[in-house]
Design a protein around this nucleic acid. Structure first.
Lengths: 228, 228
DNA sequence: TGGGTTGCTGTTGCATGCAAGTTTGCATGG
DNA sequence: CCATGCAAACTTGCATGCAACAGCAACCCA
């Protein structure tokens, strides 16, 4: 929610740990201790504690008092639950937009995803992955409800692992453009129900695609983690 | 998200501070410092820091580095935004329930709010306020999505101030029963769209009612805080 | 008079020390 | 062989100390 400033040790530790958790460097279910991390980062336990507590509040790990921290053991079912929450938030954002449609901004967003232009596809899929998440955030922002956006960002933090594994082929890129564009157009033509339907389908599709590759990825990283 | 255990000082401080913020004892916008709180609670700064950081992550206050903490300055507009997020989450919960309706549990929940019985109305409105929040949590739990429930609890933490100010008269009690009962019945008869409509109306009604009394309450506590 | 500098005070950020709690492994007895 | 009790090691929870930084006001100089 805050951070970004690298001046403080605790922030640096926090970001580093969050990255490690995201990249499966810290394998889900594994245990870490304050002392161990303090040695690894060559700092005292105080900033480590601060980082761990933040990560715990945000759901990245669970703290067992007087025993240690366990990296959150995320399973595909739980990730699916996050996706459903995402649906709830984003659909509500579209519903809110229906109260007063922000035509200008929405048209701009739609133009960014006009299938005839393919802005993001050219530079490889990495940029597209960021842009995909950004589209949904921008869409939510157009609801005019910053709190909702805040919650959506939080959800994204938890499922970003999955999102970055998708988009294997060019077909997926095209259809992403198509779907984003259609969603915007539906809102612009004041067909909120259709926009909600499309949005649901769009998110559920990526949910299914993500689930598909997660198990494989987990397996790969598990082998790497266990040295096998 | 966790807490409840009074064994640890930091948890006790956290709960106490959260309560104080809720009750406007710590007035929005006012500043608190670690040293001051450490003296007030007669503990060291360490558990105070921990509590403050948790409260900051959860949005109850903002930390200005090297300067102090400011109690989150919540306005009615922001609270309205939380209510809209609540709508999104709860409606999605009902949608999810539509996939596989939990008849038994839902019937039990409906029976608890059968207008002919009025379980909670008798013991005064205080119990009803807790029960009202509990109804929505139980309803969300029946979606089978614990993550969604977790987010809903978080939203509730932020708007509980408002919720506890409502229910001024017996008419509101009756209509609350009626609405809760109808929502359950709609799901039981597999009319998900109707349930969603009712839920939206129900939440927006309490939103409006809450907004109405908040400004007055804020004014009262402002006067008390400024000693006027 | 106005702009920049400097020193002071308040506050936090981090290191360290100690005590309490939890787990684990082993020894002992049945 | 299994259950039970105990002790040691490990880990965290909290207290305390110190240094650095932000904010503020007084001050100096033009």
């Amino acid at each position: 929610m805050v951070s970004g400033n690298r001046q403080w040790v605790a922030d640096r530790i926090y970001e580093s740990l969050r990255c490690s958790i995201m990249n499966f460097e810290l394998y889900p279910g594994s245990r870490v201790t304050e002392t161990e991390l303090a040695q690894r980062f060559d700092v005292s336990r105080t900033p480590i504690r601060e980082a761990l507590q933040r990560l715990a509040v945000e759901g990245y790990l669970t703290i067992r008092p007087k025993h240690g921290c366990y990296i959150r053991n995320l399973d595909v079912f739980e990730l699916a639950e996050y996706y459903d929450v995402r649906v709830g938030l984003e659909v509500e954002a579209v519903e809110l937009m229906g109260r007063r449609i922000p035509y200008r901004d929405l048209a701009a967003l739609a133009e960014d995803w006009n299938p005839e232009h393919l802005k993001y596809g050219d530079e490889g899929t990495e940029a597209l992955k960021d842009a995909e998440e950004d589209f949904h955030i921008r869409l939510a922002e157009l609801s005019g409800n910053p709190i909702l956006v805040q919650y959506l960002r939080d959800v994204n933090n938890h499922i970003r692992i999955l999102r970055r594994l998708g988009f294997p082929d060019q077909d997926a890129v095209i259809s992403t453009y198509q779907e984003h564009y259609e969603i915007c157009q539906s809102i612009l033509t004041n067909d909120i129900p259709k926009a909600c339907r499309l949005l649901r389908t769009h998110i559920h599709a990526s949910q299914a695609k993500g689930r598909e590759v997660t198990l494989a990825q987990l397996e790969i990283h598990r082998r790497r983690a266990t040295g096998g």
